[in-house]
Design a protein around this nucleic acid. Sequence first.
DNA 1: ATTACTACCTGACAGC
DNA 2: TGCTGTCAGGTAGTAA
Length: 286
Amino acid sequence: MPELPEVETVVRSVEPRVRGKLIRSVVTSASRVFGGQQTEIEREAPGQRIHAVTRIGKNILFQLDRQQLRVHLGMTGRLLFSEAVMTHPRARLLLEGDTGEGADGDGALQMIYDDARQFGRFQLVTGEVESLGLGPDALSITAQAFQAIVQRHRGSIKNLLMNQKLLSGMGNIYTDEALYQAKIHPLTPGVLVPTQKLQALHAAMIALLREAIQQGGSSISDYMDACGNKGSYQEQHQAYGRTGLPCPGCGTLITRIVVAQRGTHFCPQCQRLPRGLGKSPLAKSL
DNA sequence: ATTACTACCTGACAGC
DNA sequence: TGCTGTCAGGTAGTAA
């Protein structure tokens, strides 16, 4: 479900409500999202205070006294403060209520981790963030670092952009959109993307991630932030999900192929494979 | 050391 | 109303 802009939106909606608060209790229901840590989380998290909520790539990190609580939303994970919209609650955190002036101590806050497909992760992490093995965050990577990563790899540019170990935060939607804007065919090997187009891709990627954050992310089906707000960036998509519709640039119909087992949307006119690759095995799925 | 493919889950939707 | 097949924003693990 959520890629960098959606995760950032969630962080921004969650952070002000939980920062500084003490975790009173955690109740979980059996699920693969805990990776076998179910009882450990219920035992360790209560009594710890949430000092900050940060993000790296698609990971949300709650900075606690002794550990970090890592939340990865997978495809359908959500952090919610209301039971009204939840469908598959996996964990409930009871936080202390408002401690400000006038608080009566009875305003406990409940934060729910809800995840239908259980592709997410809800885990306690001890030690440094580096242990997650994530590449640099897509929103802040420099053009130089980006170029170095892409030019070192022979795999398809689409695969590469979505590989969280190389670059963290990009998912299927924003990868298709960034490649569309930079006019790069998704099957182009990274090493064959011209330097000039790489700069365009880097600029397009960051610009569209920023714009999507401004608009609260893309809500394709059930994505929402912790307050139940949906994003609106899906209205700006030019390639993703537009199979059979005209390319906004040239009018050619947007084509859907499968790359890395993911539906991939692009304009066959604007996004051409480099010469000589037309008959390569890489392009056989065309 | 890459790269490619499957498996993991549930739900929505289209077509019969 | 089912039933079946396809698709879905993600990643871990395994096999070439």
